[in-house]
Amino acid sequence: MIARSSFIQRYFQSRTGVIGLIILTLIIVMAIFGPTLYPVDPWDMVSRPLQWPSFGAEAPLGSDVLGRDVLSGLINGARVSLIIGISATAAAVAIGVTVGAVAGYFRGLTDDALMRITEVFQTIPNFLFVIVLVAVFRPSVFTISAAIAVVSWPAVARLVRGEFLSLRQRAFVESCVTIGMSTPRIIFTQILPNCIAPVIVTSSIMIATAILVEAGLSFLGLGDPNVMSWGAMIGFGRQSLRTSWYLTLIPGVAIQLTVLSISFVGEALNDSLNPRL
């Protein structure tokens, strides 16, 4: 394993990685502290409707059709986007790693069975599948995260399975068996740490995808009706796109920046964790 210091050094050599990290940190800070620092309810009518961004005290980024504060929506939406992105990815990685590790370690029939199940999930278009799941269960932050996790784990499972198939053949795994280690211990403490780098890279991209899927759902009105999210804001602004285009632009840019910064971070992680590339 590469020493920790050289990994950090290599990460900071990537300019886009640094830019991504800065933007992402700002967004995270905004999501965590924003609602305390700017305590305006995103559902409250705070000014007259469709007020253009004035950068003044009242509704600095303007208000929407119902007079709701766009800045407040932006701040609260960051929270929702990040929570869904991270929790959906965490769940998908947990399922994917387990399935992939078991399939790759035991091979044979276990592998065949698990991979056929994985393929069933892969043949269904992701976004449609999420819509179906969210429509069947009542939309909430939890069900949306779960639905996104259900459609995203197969990618992780295939990745981890591939790594396990090759690591499994290595002599050190055999020597773990000869020193009397139990199978779960070999899987989790010996092989898994060896394939964690590609999993980290994939999951950073998955966070970005999850945020986009959530935005898409909210835009279609299938999001959690109790929370303000960026996708929902775009949806609300859609009717007045020609007159008050800022209502669509501002949350759109927010989504764009978040996804872009996460992709930058993911790419820089990939380069610094796999220096041979």
Partner: peptide
């Protein structure tokens, strides 16, 4: 047991 290739027999990480 002791194996043939000692470097490969140790966990690299």
């Amino acid at each position: 047991m002791i194996f043939q290739d000692p470097i490969a027999s140790l966990n690299p990480i």
